[in-house]
């Protein structure tokens, strides 16, 4: 009975969604106005080559601040959900459930790790010129740390350092936004107040470079914190300390 109801419900949803989709032409320019505004304004006024970056950071900067906050809340929530009182022994020597990785993986991880972090830094520094940006660069850096975390059982990240990086990056984002209230032409939050420079230069786009460096550090620190919290869970099963 339940199956019949659910499948018929899905069928009705599919019918209405499909009838809506058929009226959307594929590959045609049917949304007028917004796209041309962004595509004209981004290279001429703001001197940002990558239009997606200029939308994410300049036109919708407040949205990006909210997004970074949501990721921070996710990392905090994860820590508080998985919190358990550690006995004094495990507090000194935290343990991983994962088995020891082979020597080949360990040697390879040691070689690849610095290059992965370098690639992540490249991606978020060049966010306004090439595809990429703070979120992608931060995720790549977190992937490098993940490689070290699963290869070496003794590799632990310092949560105090991560907290400080997150705090500094978030504060600099907000401080740049507040500086826009004072120094920019129209006195808006997160408005560009630095000289725009030349199109396709590394030092162009005004505040985008600084904001993307802050976002890259913050996202990298947050995702590394999430992974470390998940990986240092002790033995699975019921815990006598709980309840």
């Amino acid at each position: 009975m339940k199956n019949v109801i659910i499948i018929s419900l899905l069928g009705v949803t599919a019918y209405y969604l499909l009838s809506a989709f058929v009226s959307i032409p594929f590959g045609e320019d049917f949304i007028n106005g917004v796209k041309d505004f962004y595509l004209n304004k981004s290279p001429e006024d703001l001197k940002v080559a990558n239009v997606v970056t200029s939308i994410v950071v300049n036109f919708r900067g407040f949205d990006t601040l909210g997004e970074v906050t949501v990721l921070f809340l996710a990392s905090t929530a994860l820590g508080s959900i998985l919190y358990r009182r550690r006995s004094s022994h495990t507090a000194l020597n935290p343990q991983r459930t994962a088995p020891q990785a082979s020597t080949l993986v360990q040697a390879g991880a040691k070689v690849i790790f610095p290059f992965t972090v370098l690639l992540g830094a490249y991606v978020f520094i060049h966010g306004h010129l090439t595809p990429g940006g703070g979120f992608q660069g931060g995720a790549i850096i977190a992937t490098g740390f993940l490689l070290m975390l699963i290869s070496y059982r003794k590799f632990f990240v310092e949560h105090n350092v991560l907290t400080w990086i997150e705090a500094l990056a978030g504060t600099s984002f907000v401080v740049i936004g507040l500086a826009g209230l004072v120094y920019a032409d129209n006195h808006n939050f997160l408005e560009n107040f630095l000289p725009a420079g030349e199109l396709n230069d590394l030092l162009s786009g005004g505040i985008i470079g600084i904001i993307y460096i802050a976002v890259g550090f913050k996202v990298g620190a947050e995702i590394t914190g999430i992974l470390d919290t998940l990986l240092t869970i002790k033995e699975a099963g019921l815990d006598p300390e709980e309840n």
């Binding site: 595809p131 979120f135 992608q136 995720a139 992937t143 993940l146 992974l227």
Partner: peptide
């Protein structure tokens, strides 16, 4: 594509 590759595939 870059975001999906970094976050969807690996993390």
């Amino acid at each position: 594509a870059l975001t999906e590759a970094a976050i969807g595939i690996a993390l």
